[in-house]
Design a binder for these strands. Structure first.
Lengths: 218, 218
DNA sequence: CAGCATCCGCTTTGATACTG
DNA sequence: CAGTATCAAAGCGGATGCTG
């Protein structure tokens, strides 16, 4: 809340979203869309409930988040990003991409949520054969499923199950990430506990390999 | 310093650069290159000196900043970004661009530094006639001069004087920004205290006009 | 002077308990 | 479900002092 009082765009941005937890709240709303208070709390393990309430008030005052009181049948409050809030997506993805390599050394006592996978996956994966018909892959981690789809050369990740997935991967987020980013091949991932069903060609189409030239390691 | 303990790239990034002042220190090193401690303090008005020292230690431990002890003639310590630190540029520019519209309502008691202009200017300006020979414009605000140069359709902003500028603009940063982003035309800017020397065509080549279609207002 | 370290008061955060 | 209340601990801001 305390301003830097500097005539600088970055400082002004940090005045609004630089406080602890604030950008992670935006992350939740970006990935999940409209959210209830409890959904947010579940996606932000470690946050104190008074802080979440206070941040939501600040974000609303800053025009980044809006709150809707219940469509009639369900009686609940929904929080969602305003258009201005959604404009934070580019900055958030850039920061998340910078941090993605840090996921390589995974800390065993880190909290894990399946939907957090969508950010690094969209960053690392490409469709190698965009001319062919699009495919979809379902990721299962014991929590909510995540859906991967190819679209104009890119890979989109979103929440939800695939109606007719071309492949299904079931494992921990760490294992899925290791497999898809090329750190582990399919046989090794399987012995580590990953379940894959579908044609190996589907996997090869989007999987990064160690030979992929990218500046950032994973 | 306190970690979020979340298996998420954004959270990992914020673990390293999410603390107060940290991204602004990176901003200084990005714009100015290698810096002495006192240069940093001057570019970060409001920071407590012990915090600056502590943040620099943390950034060094994180592999984002390196410190060099003096080339022999001058006896001083130089701080600079490591390659990994420089990779923060994209994220920093994205956040700065998001915050750039907030510069429109300028607060009179905000601190001002000429070199902070480089970020919003690179964001807003385009070279309208990239086929013509490149031009350079010098900005003077009473502090260090800033140099604008056209290069492949874009406008680059950096610190330092132009050897043979095609135009010179002297005014406060707020006025310069208002003129170049199209909020003020040249006659009005002049009556507000701005000095312009050079052909008006030079200005028209890079200046944004209110008719420029961009989603973000300024 | 450059580059800190120490001390102190205030603010922010974290953890938990409680409520309409 | 969606918060508020309370309180201890940590972080921050400002001033000052120290060292090569």
């Amino acid at each position: 809340v305390r301003s830097y009082h500097q005539y600088c765009g970055l400082a002004k941005a940090l005045d609004l979203v630089g406080d602890r937890w604030t950008l992670l709240i935006v992350r939740e709303l970006l990935i999940r869309g409209a959210c209830r208070y409890t959904d947010l709390r579940d996606g932000l393990p470690g946050i104190a409930t008074n802080l979440l309430a206070e941040r939501l008030r600040e974000l609303q005052a800053a025009g980044i988040v809006s709150r809707e009181d219940a469509p009639p049948p369900i009686a609940t409050t929904l929080f969602r990003l305003t258009p201005r809030g959604r404009e934070l997506e580019a900055a958030l993805l850039a920061l998340g991409s910078w941090g993605a390599p840090l996921l390589a050394q995974s800390n065993p006592d880190d909290a894990v949520r399946a939907h957090w996978l969508t950010l690094p996956l969209q960053h690392y994966l490409r469709d190698r054969t965009p001319a062919e018909p699009p495919i979809s892959i379902e990721l299962r981690t014991g929590q909510e499923p995540v859906l991967l789809e190819t679209a104009d050369g890119k890979v989109r990740a979103s929440l939800g199950a695939a109606p007719h997935p071309d492949a299904v991967i079931a494992a921990t987020p760490q294992l899925i990430l290791a497999l898809l980013t090329g750190k582990l091949d399919l046989p090794r991932a399987r012995t580590a506990g990953l379940h894959y069903s579908g044609s190996p060609a589907i996997l090869r189409r989007v999987r990064r390999t160690s030979s992929d030239a990218r500046s950032d390691a994973c």
